[in-house]
Design a protein around this nucleic acid. Structure first.
Lengths: 114, 114
DNA sequence: TTTATTGTCAACCAATTGGTTTACGATTAA
DNA sequence: TTAATCGTAAACCAATTGGTTGACAATAAA
């Protein structure tokens, strides 16, 4: 498993915790990929849009390329893959812990408490 | 796919964006499962620990059970499964988009731009 | 050349976050 | 009964967040 650093996890989870930023990611996958296009689609200013895109960029979720005065954004799916692996690992781990507990309890039905 | 609501995604991603809270989840899977045990393991006060656990609880990542004056915490893996599915869905979707783009470009090598 | 567009930066503001300390109710132990 | 423990609530504080507006540099269009 490719391990994402703690700082990366901090940034990625934080970036994903905002519904506007999640929508931006979805929009980027579809068509509009310039800052101006995104700014038109959201109910806040150009500057605010730019800030949100910075958060996504610092989390490694998107990449920006400047062409003249325009900035093109594109998704970077590999970062999301790190997150997927982190979540999957712990979800499975915790499922296993619960299974172990249940097995233990069913094998020790009269287990005295304390 | 079980769709998590936007609010749930907000809360879960936000809860996971803090390294202390992620460590708490890991600790809960292992052994200590009372607020007092967790409070001993972290470099901040009981009250702060309690607040962090509230964030995890509101995100649906843990559940609390009161027994007398003690509060027992346990992991709720199903919430993490919603997140796993969300991440997996978009990661695959974006991968696909990129594949389509590459295919298009390789099939239109002399594609004039604008 | 002049004008319009694109994006970012800086300064600002209100709301939220993450921590503290203190006090407290409820429960358990002496 | 009295004293200690467990967890939460309230009040507070500094730092961060998410938005605004206005100015600006760089570029593209007229």
């Amino acid at each position: 498993m490719v391990v994402a650093s703690e700082k990366t996890l901090d940034r990625v989870f934080y970036a994903l915790s905002d519904p506007s930023r999640r929508k931006m990611l979805q929009a980027l996958a579809a068509d509009g990929y310039q800052v101006k296009d995104l700014a038109k689609s959201f109910p806040f200013s150009k500057a605010a849009t730019s800030k949100h895109l910075n958060v996504l960029e610092e989390a490694g979720l998107i990449e920006k390329t400047r062409k003249g005065r325009e900035v093109f954004c594109s998704i970077n799916p590999s970062t999301l893959q790190h997150v997927e692996e982190w979540v999957k690992f712990y979800r499975q781990f915790w499922d296993q812990q619960l299974d172990n507990l249940e097995t233990f309890l069913s094998e020790n039905p009269k287990n005295s408490r304390k």
